[in-house]
């Protein structure tokens, strides 16, 4: 896949990092401000799609990237289920129980396991949407018209 012109590449260099950092901020502060795992994951996927569209990349590189992203997605959905099972082992024995100390409402480190769920669900959503986009591009590269 070919990239775009020099102007688009330069603008992407300036913007894409900031969009990525904004996604991470939305995920980490998901229990304090509007946002959370789903919103931040979609924003991170958007920044990755922007970089891929602007710079392009040859076929083998895209395939390699797709294989790596698939592993990230599988690991993060596995981690969500393992945290849920950990609630079954510690504290009161209930699936999905919040077994860590709650802390003070309004501080960054509070709310027990909710920030962990936010982080792993965010990674999973970002990886899923990026895989869908990458496989569409690889399909169009593989069989042109």
């Amino acid at each position: 896949m070919k990239g775009m012109t020099l102007i688009v590449k330069k603008t992407t260099q300036l913007i894409a990092g900031m969009i990525f950092m904004y996604g991470i901020y939305i995920i980490v502060h998901g229990h304090l401000t509007p946002g959370g795992g789903f919103a931040g994951g979609v924003i991170i996927a958007g920044s990755l799609i922007l970089v891929t569209l602007a710079y392009g990349g040859d076929f083998l590189k895209l395939v390699k990237e797709e294989a790596g992203t698939t592993i990230v997605e599988s690991i993060s959905i596995l981690m969500v289920i393992m945290i849920a099972t950990a609630g079954f082992l510690f504290g009161i024995h209930i699936f999905f129980s919040n077994f860590l100390p709650k802390g003070v409402v309004g501080q960054l480190i509070s709310a027990g396991v909710l920030p962990l769920y936010n982080i792993f669900v965010g990674t999973e959503v970002a990886a899923s949407i990026f895989i869908i986009f990458l496989s569409l591009i690889i399909f169009k590269e593989e069989s042109p018209q």
């Binding site: 229990h31 795992g37 289920i81 849920a84 919040n98």
Partner: peptide, 25 residues
């Protein structure tokens, strides 16, 4: 104070209705 999360939507998504969220993931 039950969930420890200031954002009530996150509290509902991941604590009160955790099964729903796992199913959708």
């Amino acid at each position: 104070y039950k969930t420890g999360s200031a954002n009530l939507v996150t509290g509902v998504v991941f604590d009160f209705r955790g099964y729903d969220t796992m199913g959708e993931a």
